[in-house]
Design a protein around this nucleic acid. Structure first.
Length: 959
RNA sequence: GCCGGAGUGGCGGAAUUGGCAUACGCGGCGGAUUCAAAAUCCGCUGGCCGAAAGGCCGUGUGGGUUCGAGUCCCACCUCCGGCACCA
């Protein structure tokens, strides 16, 4: 409009335009100079004298929408820490890459026909450009995406390692299958009646079987080839199993337990049903105890540790065998798991899950139950019920009697066996002993079906056991047989005694159970890693040889999944690829003749696969002979793993548990040097946004609200008042903030400072665009203190102002203290105080001297690196400020000549005294009594007590 | 229901070990500059009473410990996150 602006605004004021110029200049400089390329051990430029620091961000899924304001929150935090660690003399590994396989790109392909690789590459380019615009100090030479064949080659390789490994419970670690075969050939290890392994000479040695008796075991040479193969296949850590899966007809895929929330898919919220399917599994349950125990060794938020511990769900109890009367369907016993063996005498019926194999056996037996049709119908209904329905009926118990009886080993009474869907096949043995008197669920069931409720633990006076279960502590009652009595014992003692008795009688053993299930690893999707395995016509599976990896994903033109109840993997559409020969697929010729016709596996790996080991690849991303070079891995991961890992709390169980599992597997096989991947973990809080709520709690989009007066909001259309609340950013609420807009308005340095200044890193906090200007003003003020706005030259003070110098050293000390504890908001506040002090004094001829500017630029640079570099270069330096040492505070300058301390009378501040900082107790008493106002208030009173904390405060107790 | 976390001005938040509650920023008010506005700069800003000096109240609620409590203890309320028929 007018050119007056140009004449009144100084040419070198820190404006958004100037910020943009400075920032893009330094970003190009860093790229060209390779400032942040970190050499590896063995590289010419590597400095072995420095300690290492590996700082990792959870890599993003590059979505088409571009960066969200939540991304730069964690990334700025790690960036500050990395820049600080470099300046304090560390070799810093700070990589970035892309978690690029996954559903959204495939869904987009379904809608548009655009190949996911194309969509993904485009999104990656956008993300990279946006991240560089923030000035993050990533070593971009280490960048990769999980979809790169050079990367997923090794993802497949790791899967093969698991396929070719078993878990040795005696050594408590994974070992190669070859060693298992050696041991079986040596015949100390035998095969038990259930296909389990029995180690001769080891107490309690069998997996899955009760007791340690090698009865019914077979030696390796007694088995034929198919039997041997079955034994081996059942031991693999990556194994094929017919399991009840979470099938999502709408998404056309199965989902892991972790991906199902309230019976619906985590992504898209579609209904999920349960059905049996042959799928690749990971035997993560073998690691349950170690995954739980090793949480003690990592520096993680307690909330996350608790979440993982709950997910693993360790419980202690007993496995108990109940004899079945009349051997129904050939079954002699029914095995249950219980955490309350002390209530055994109160077990008045039993329940098996609808999927329990006993049910099928009983129905198929020569003497099926009279109500067989009813049982069959119930099982069928339960199978078809979605988990939503199954869980919606928590309160209402359903079930049907199976028409057979079991014998309670404690009192030899016959108890009926029921089928009910409140018992889950996936936990314990899918069967329970029901003790209605002392378990709420059993009680509800017993009441519904009129089953006996037998009290065996004393309840408080007035408790009606027929009306309500009692699950609390008490003493045993009605619990005696000819050789054991629990009467009068507390719950803990009764548990111990019962187990002792069960073990002596051979009816059961002490055992530990976990809620954790094995990890279902197959997906019927296209956009994922293919499995390196093929099938022969007889249905057997054969691994692809390592040297033939990767098994590349074939091109596809039609991505539409069949929406059906019958799982059809998408890769089945690539018929030429699926039907091949062993030689063509890369199966070792010693294993199968090359011309053997084979079918490739058409399932793909889930989205989690690539993120399970990416932190390892960053150490040595170009290595084409190993997944990570031994020296690089040993140096960067060391004994404890990644030094600092920052990312969202939404990954507290899934990604973080899976990655720990893979890491432990690789550790056992000697491929990595630490038992845990991530030493210190930190979650940045969610960045929310303001939203508006009507009286009826419905939300109003932000653009339909006005603020007619300070702090009060009305809905434009109705004039009704609405309340300002915080909510997740969402398109529908029109409260999504785009980082590009903020950078355009104020620059990246302001954006970085704002997000770090909003509050504690771990706290969830609302974005408030109005507040961003405060940090821009801070930078503008800092710039003005240092630079002449008319000429653009430095304008240092000629002499040191003592107050400013003290503020400087306080800021240095505060920043040094706060960065390692990730308290960036208070570090920034200290720098603002310094700049305010220097601004005030500049009007009085103060400001910062050249030496002070030097120090200030250094402490500012991790937070606002572009301004840091600009000031640094104005100081006449030609190197990067990222490569210079971080200042140390001069302790002597932190102490003022005098300090003001409060004087309280009866705990209320009544005056202040000015004393030397080292004034002792007597000096403080003297100064306090000498204060006019204090003396006045003490008049006529007796001093009862002095409380004097030198340097802090004085309190006088008087009346 | 169970587990975890949090409640401090108009708003975001600060407060090493129990020691001046509200640092710092936003917003608001007043002033400078400007023809004017924006930007920038300076000052004030928890509530109530008071002309002022000053006084009283104040960290979700109610109790307690202490010379002194945002901080420790007991009981409760509200909000957020997670798990949820796991025997």
């Amino acid at each position: 409009m007018s050119t007056d602006t140009a004449s009144t605004t100084p040419a070198f004021r820190y404006s958004p335009t100037l910020a943009d110029t400075i920032e893009t200049k330094w970003q190009s400089y860093w790229d060209e100079q390779g400032t942040f390329i970190q050499p590896n051990p063995g590289d010419a430029a590597f400095d072995a004298s420095k300690p290492k620091f590996y700082c990792l961000d959870m890599f993003p899924y590059p979505s088409g929408a571009g960066l969200h304001v939540g991304h730069p929150e964690g990334y700025t935090a790690t960036d500050i820490v990395c820049r600080y660690m470099r300046m304090t003399g560390h070799n810093v590994l700070h990589p970035m890459g892309w978690d690029a396989f996954g559903l959204p790109a495939e869904q987009y392909a379904i809608q548009t026909g655009v190949h996911p690789a194309e969509t993904t590459t485009k999104a990656i380019n956008t993300f990279r450009r946006q991240l560089k615009r923030f000035g993050f100090c990533y070593d971009w030479s280490r960048e990769f995406a999980t979809i790169d064949p050079d990367y997923y080659k090794w993802t497949q390789w790791i899967w093969l390692k698991a396929y070719d490994a078993w878990y040795d419970p005696w050594q408590d670690k994974a070992r190669p299958i070859g060693e298992l075969i050696n041991e079986l050939e040596g015949e100390d290890l035998r095969v038990g009646p259930e296909g389990d392994l029995v180690h001769i000479g080891h107490e309690g040695a069998s997996i899955g079987a009760l007791g340690s008796e090698p009865v019914g075991t077979r030696r390796w040479h007694e088995l034929d080839e198919p039997e041997r193969r079955e034994v081996i296949d059942n031991q693999r850590l990556a194994y094929l199993d017919e399991v009840t899966v979470n099938w999502c007809p709408k998404l056309g895929t199965v989902l892991a337990n972790e991906e199902v929330i309230d019976g619906r898919s985590e992504r898209g919220s579609h209904p999920v049903t349960r059905r049996p399917l042959k799928q690749w599994m990971f035997r993560i349950t073998a690691y349950a105890e170690r995954l739980l125990a090793d949480l003690a060794d990592v520096d993680w938020p307690t909330s996350t540790k608790t979440l993982q511990a709950n997910w693993i769900g360790r419980s202690e109890g007993a496995e108990i065998n109940f004899q079945l009367a009349d051997e129904p369907g050939g079954w002699e016993t029914l095995r249950v798991y219980t955490t309350r063996p002390d209530t055994l005498f109160g077990a008045s019926y039993m329940v098996v899950a609808p999927e329990h194999p006993l049910v099928e056996s009983v129905l198929a037996s020569s003497t099926p139950p009279a109500n067989a049709d009813e049982v069959r119908a119930y099982v069928e209904t339960a199978r078809n019920k979605s988990d939503v329905d199954r869980q919606a009926e928590t309160k209402i118990k359903t079930g049907v009697a199976l028409g057979i009886d079991a014998i309670n080993p404690a009192n030899d009474q016959r108890v009926p066996v029921w089928v009910a869907d409140y018992v889950l096949m996936g936990y314990g043995h899918g069967a329970i002993m029901a003790v209605p008197a002392h378990d709420e669920r059993d009680h509800a069931f017993a009441r519904t079906f009129n089953l006996p409720i037998v009290q065996v633990i004393s309840a408080p006076d007035g408790h009606d056991i027929q009306a309500e279960a009692y699950a609390g502590d008490g003493v045993g009652m009605n619990s005696s047989n000819s050789d054991v009595s629990l009467d009068g014992l507390g719950v803990a003692d009764a548990k111990a005694k019962t187990i002792e008795w069960l073990e002596a009688q051979g009816h059961g053993i002490r055992t530990v159970n976990y809620r954790l299930r094995d990890w279902l690893f197959s997906r019927q999707r296209y956009w994922g890693e293919p499995f390196p395995v093929v099938y022969t016509e007889d249905g057997r599976h054969w691994p692809i040889g390592e040297e033939s990896l990767p098994v590349t994903l074939p091109e596809l033109t039609d991505y539409q999944p069949a929406e059906s109840d019958d799982p059809q993997p998408l890769l089945g559409k690539a018929t030429d690829w699926v039907r091949t020969t062993a030689g063509e697929a890369g199966v070792c010729s010693r294993v199968l003749p090359p011309d053997t016709p084979v079918m490739r596996e058409t399932n793909t790996m889930p989205g989690w696969a690539g993120s399970c080991w990416y932190y390892l690849r960053y150490c040595d991303p170009k290595n084409d002979s190993r997944f990570v070079g031994t020296d690089a891995e040993d140096y960067w991961l060391g004994a404890n793993g990644v030094d600092l890992y920052i990312g969202g709390a939404e990954h507290a169980v899934l990604h973080l548990l899976y990655a720990r599992f893979w890491h432990k597997l690789l550790f056992d096989l000697g491929e990595v040097s630490s038992p845990e991947p991530f030493k210190k973990l930190f979650h940045q809080g969610l960045i929310t946004s303001f939203a508006f709520q009507r009286k009826d709690k419905t939300l109003v989009p932000t653009d339909q609200v006005e603020e007619p007066s300070e702090g009060s909001f009305i809905e434009t259309a109705t004039g009704e008042p609405v309340a300002q609340i915080t909510a997740k950013m969402s398109k529908s609420l029109k409260n999504v903030v785009n980082p590009d807009d903020v950078i355009a308005e104020f620059g990246a340095d302001t954006f970085r400072l704002y997000e770090m200044y909003m509050g504690p890193l771990e706290a969830s906090k609302p974005w408030n665009t109005r507040d961003t200007v405060g940090l821009f003003r801070f930078l503008q003020r800092a710039w003005r203190v240092v630079v002449d706005e008319e000429t653009g030259e430095l304008s240092p003070a000629s002499s040191i102002d003592e107050d400013v110098d003290r503020a400087l050293h306080k800021a240095i000390a505060k920043v040094r203290e706060d960065i390692p504890r990730l308290a960036f908001n208070t570090a920034i506040a200290a720098m603002i105080e310094l700049v305010n002090a220097a601004t005030t004094s500049k009007g009085n001829g103060g400001g910062l001297t050249t030496e002070q500017i030097d120090q200030f630029a250094r402490i500012l640079s991790p937070f606002a690196p572009h301004m840091g570099e600009e000031i640094w270069s104005k100081l006449g330096n030609s190197n990067s400020i990222a490569d210079v040492p971080f200042p140390e505070a001069d302790q002597s300058k932190l102490v003022a000549d005098t300090i003001e301390i409060p004087v309280q009378i009866m705990g209320k501040v009544r005056g202040k005294i000015v004393v030397p900082p080292d004034a002792d107790e007597d000096a403080l008493k003297a100064a306090a009594t000498a204060d006019e106002r204090i003396a006045e208030l003490l008049e006529g009173k007796t001093i009862r007590k002095w409380i004097v904390i030198p340097g802090r405060m004085v309190n006088i107790v008087a009346n």
